[in-house]
């Protein structure tokens, strides 16, 4: 089980043996497939692929898409209160980008023979998950900065390798997404930089946000490698290129110098450069919190789902009207 979007994390009712996906054009046997991958490096929608590969991909892409969509909420929470019109515009555009990411990803999933409405149903009924990081509240404006800097930063770390993942439509979606995520990360950094160079109250706001978002951001990479059963298979299939711990280390190495540039302290006294390893050491992550959030006991799990389900239900009459209109006018045109 891993937690970053763009990372595969299973739930009990999605383990092998519960069919929920149509079989592909042909269920290629896994060994031939791995050999083919070594030659070809890219699988396209019409290619043969093992059923389990297809299933893993659908689950991962759907969960990634859901994360983009649920991720609109914590930051959307500050659109109405953004402290300047320029920040308001940047934030609206950012949250809009996340909706766009969701769209690309649902389309990528649809190339595997599932449909968006179905995936969204699975999200609403709790059968599919989204990244746990979005179950934390955005309490102050600085949280918008911390999410951009740390959460989008962690997402980029995880997603840049996915630009070369074995499934063509997913990798191409990732190329577009990553470009925008790096803007988001820079914007988040800039929000925090402005705050940390502002009044004492602004500075305190920035430090508080980093204190609250640092550990949850590290948990976005999922459990340690020796506790991550799905990873090996995903690596063999080219869906995952680096292990959870490697990605986490990469993120820490990128982020520590940036925190120094910001003049903010990361809430881990054990962070220090290790010359021998050529990496930053950091403290032990307490994963019990992550598991609580995954189980549904995070600060905002219930609110995020309620918000999403309500928007969907409130919009039902609109979608029905659009479908009825289209059907009516298709008939009218056919008759003409």
């Amino acid at each position: 089980m891993a937690q970053v979007y763009g990372n595969d994390f299973g739930t009990p009712d999605q383990q092998p043996g519960r069919p929920q996906m149509p079989p592909g054009p042909a269920d290629l046997d896994p060994e031939t497939f791995v050999e083919l991958l070594a030659d070809e490096d890219r699988v396209e929608p019409r290619d043969d692929m093992p059923a389990a590969y297809r299933k893993t991909l659908v689950r991962q892409i759907a969960q990634h898409a859901h994360s983009e969509i649920i991720g609109m909420q914590p930051e959307g929470n500050w659109i109405s209160r953004a402290p300047s019109l320029k920040r308001k515009a940047i934030l609206m555009a950012k949250v809009q980008d996340e909706a766009g990411h969701g769209l690309y990803l649902y389309s990528a999933a649809e190339t595997l023979g599932v449909d968006r409405a179905d995936l969204i149903d699975q999200l609403h009924s709790g059968r599919q998950k989204y990244s746990s990081i979005f179950n934390y509240p955005t309490l102050t404006w600085a949280d918008v900065g911390a999410i951009g800097w740390l959460v989008d930063g962690a997402a980029i770390t995880n997603q840049v390798p996915l630009c070369r993942c074995s499934y063509g439509p997913y990798s191409r979606a990732m190329v577009r997404v990553c470009k925008e995520e790096s803007f988001h990360q820079r914007q988040g950094f800039e929000i925090l930089w402005t705050l940390s160079h502002g009044s004492p109250a602004q500075r305190a706001m920035a430090q508080d946000a980093v204190d609250r978002y640092w550990w949850p951001s590290l948990m976005m990479f999922g459990p340690p490698d020796d506790d991550s059963p799905n990873s090996a298979q995903s690596m063999a299939w080219g869906i995952k290129r680096f292990s959870n711990d490697d990605l986490r280390q990469r993120f820490v190495d990128m982020t520590v110098p940036q925190s120094e540039a910001l003049g903010l302290t990361l809430p881990d006294p054990e962070i220090r450069w290790n010359d021998e390893r050529g990496h930053y050491d950091f403290g032990t992550i307490d994963f019990t919190e992550l598991f609580e959030v995954v189980k549904g006991n995070g600060p905002c799990n219930a609110e995020r789902m309620a918000h999403k389900v309500k928007a969907h239900e409130d919009g039902a009459w609109v979608r029905e009207a659009a479908a009825a209109y289209a059907a009516k006018h298709a008939v009218a045109e056919g008759a003409a």
Binding site: I79, M92, Q96, A99, A311
Partner: peptide, 22 residues
């Protein structure tokens, strides 16, 4: 309009209403 972003009847509409708001 900003209120609608994440509350629209479909994802395409979140994008469109955000555009209009912007």
């Amino acid at each position: 309009m900003g209120w609608w972003i994440s509350r629209a009847p479909e994802l395409e509409e979140d994008v469109a209403l955000a555009n209009i708001g912007l």
